[in-house]
């Protein structure tokens, strides 16, 4: 009897130590960190077929041949506001470069709010609504802002969850241009 109690106690202890190690490994780690790595990297660009606020059609096929920065955003999200200046600065530096372009796709917002934001906040790059959220789904987005960079040949080369900076936009675009 005595031996059995001890044996069971030791067994339980081993399991608990294992559990404790697993838990300890996770202390201080953001549980979402890895979940937010895009599954699309290296894959062909998801298809999308949208219309910009000006009424121009835009799709994955129409963008082939250029590096495309696809930025999912909306007017109410605070991290989107945080990256706004970076987007404006990057666009100012690159808008005349025919080899790259940027497309803002609206995630979970109303057209009215978006149009007001575009007018008030100097959004001069093309912005498209995403009726039914199909493009957001096709990219596997989990929130906003999310940014994907697609190479001229139509491969998803880089992605960023959360606000971008000018430097990491440049890095992602450079990577896409290397892929070609």
């Amino acid at each position: 009897m005595r031996v059995r109690v001890r044996a069971v106690a030791v067994g339980v202890a081993v399991v608990l130590v294992g559990l404790a190690v697993v838990l300890a490994l996770n202390v201080g780690r953001d549980p979402r960190a890895d979940a937010n790595r895009s599954q699309l990297l290296g894959q062909p660009s998801p298809t999308y077929d949208l219309e910009t606020l000006d009424g121009a059609p835009v799709s994955d096929e129409s963008q082939i041949g250029r590096t495309v920065v696809v930025n999912f955003w909306n007017s109410w999200c605070i991290p989107c506001e945080q990256e706004h200046d970076a987007l404006v600065a990057w666009w100012a530096a690159n808008r005349d470069d025919d080899a790259v372009t940027m497309l803002g796709i609206v995630r979970e917002d109303t057209r009215r709010a978006v149009e007001r934001y575009v007018r008030d906040e100097d959004v001069t790059w093309p912005v498209a609504m995403d009726p039914g959220g199909r493009a957001a789904l096709a990219f596997g987005t989990r929130g906003q802002p999310e940014t994907y960079v697609i190479s001229p040949s139509g491969v998803v080369v880089a992605s960023q969850y959360g606000p971008v900076t000018v430097a990491n936009l440049d890095d992602m675009v450079a990577a896409a241009e290397r892929v070609g």
Partner: peptide
């Protein structure tokens, strides 16, 4: 940073409980 503290306390409680049970196992028939 509270996580590490709680985990340590958990280990202490569970560990001492288990050790005591193993130690007193003979009396517990």
């Amino acid at each position: 940073s509270i996580g590490g503290w709680l985990l340590a306390f958990l280990a202490l409680s569970a560990g001492s409980g288990l050790a005591l049970i193993a130690w007193r196992g003979d009396r517990l028939r």
